[in-house]
Design a protein around this nucleic acid. Structure first.
Lengths: 230, 230
DNA sequence: TCTTGTTAGATTGTCGACAATCTGCTTCCT
DNA sequence: AGGAAGCAGATTGTCGACAATCTAACAAGA
């Protein structure tokens, strides 16, 4: 028999598709923070009954990008400067841990994948596709977490990523069109290929701080005015 | 007007109560790892329809203590030695971070709460109530995460805790009755009250390693035999 | 005018029934 | 006997309707 390993077939439940649709809408900023999700309206738009929709919403609530108040509704989480600060400071710790765990596991496949994802970021940058740029940048960043061979770390990082992606999307959306053209990931990739682990950890921390300040300033601005309802 | 701040009233949805019931059943080991949860049977036992039950199960899936396979069923997660190892190694990192963040925020209220939780552990130990002992020990341990003033950290730690509690419960259940009588938390509490942050961090790490080895050995034993279905 | 009670509308929470899918057994064919 | 096809039962996924709750507007009384 041929040695072909098949990937698992897609989840064919409505619920799974709804989750994907809603997540995308939230992470790309199509659904604004604080906005209420009307079950009837959404279920009609998606041509789906409320049962799978509600189940999907429960998942996203646990995922941390929706919040639910009994008998009042389910809302996109509000983005406060403190949330961003919290997420970032924890992210630094996770990065340091991920690099440490990944370091000894690096091999050719790791480097290849690193290059592949790096290229994807550059492609998105050339295309001026800001949404995809955020997505690919986070995927590049996520490689160390995937490679660290720690399922709990990976899970944790993915949860964090959801929010970070949302923050970035909002940020980009606010100051439309301005794409950071120069490649800030060059050094990061180089260090991950090198021999100095501490240097890689230090860079990850500093690099993160860079984007972070901008984002924080934006979020502080947001907090002045109240969030809009549906 | 009197200066009385009311706490928010309890969630009165069936869903919330179901979540609490199921979580408790899983974390105390009443529901075994790998066991299938039959929706119809459980909903009849609880006198509830399947809709809120299913929503509750989705939440617990995202919480990481249940796992779901479309059209096949929802199961209590399997406990592997690697899972425990992963959870513990990440927990160390989070502890170190939490202590660092908490350190400057410690005040009298912190110390009081620390003592209160420490006393709760000792009480459970005196009562030979192993389940409660695990619960209170984790609550004592969790104070630094609550006090660190980082919502994302707290959330992450709570997710981890769910699983740790489950692991411990299984462990305790396996070697029934053997309660570690001597108080291993004494030093921990003392260090958190002291002036040497690095020492506190070091102790947290070492203390964890202690329980951990035992737990790991137990889990390795488990993996020899297949998990039971419903 | 301010507060309190009432009511109508909208929305969320829950229910019971039906459809889709899986599993194990039986049957039939070679 | 071995294996594929098909059937029956059980279980999960989805639907539409009903019940419980909230919100906001309005009316009544102090």
């Amino acid at each position: 028999m041929a040695k072909l390993d098949f990937s698992p077939i897609a989840d064919t439940t409505r619920r799974a598709e709804i989750v994907a649709l809603l997540r995308r809408a939230i992470l790309t900023g199509q659904l604004e923070p604080g906005q209420k999700l009307n079950e009837l309206r959404i279920s009609e738009q998606m041509r789906v009954s409320r049962a799978p929709l509600r189940e999907a919403m429960r998942e996203l609530v646990q995922e941390g990008i929706l919040t639910s108040i009994p008998y009042a509704g389910t809302f996109v989480i509000d983005v406060t400067a403190k949330d961003i600060d919290d997420a970032y400071s924890l992210n630094k710790v996770l990065d340091e841990f991920a690099i440490e765990r990944t370091w000894k596991l690096r091999d050719q496949r790791f480097f290849d994948e690193l290059d592949r994802r790096h290229e994807a970021v550059q492609q998105a940058t050339r295309d001026r596709d800001t949404t995809r740029q955020i997505e690919t940048a986070l995927q590049l960043h996520g490689l160390i977490h995937e490679w660290a061979d720690n399922s709990v770390l990976l899970e944790t990082w993915q949860r964090l990523t959801s929010r970070l992606q949302m923050y970035f999307a909002l940020h980009q959306q606010a100051r439309k069109e301005v794409v950071p053209a120069e490649d800030v990931h060059e050094t990061y990739v180089a260090l991950l290929k090198g021999d100095d682990m501490r240097a890689a950890q230090r860079h990850a921390r500093e690099h993160i701080d860079l984007d972070f300040e901008e984002l924080l300033a934006y979020a502080r601005g947001l907090e002045q005015r109240p969030s809009k309802g549906a």
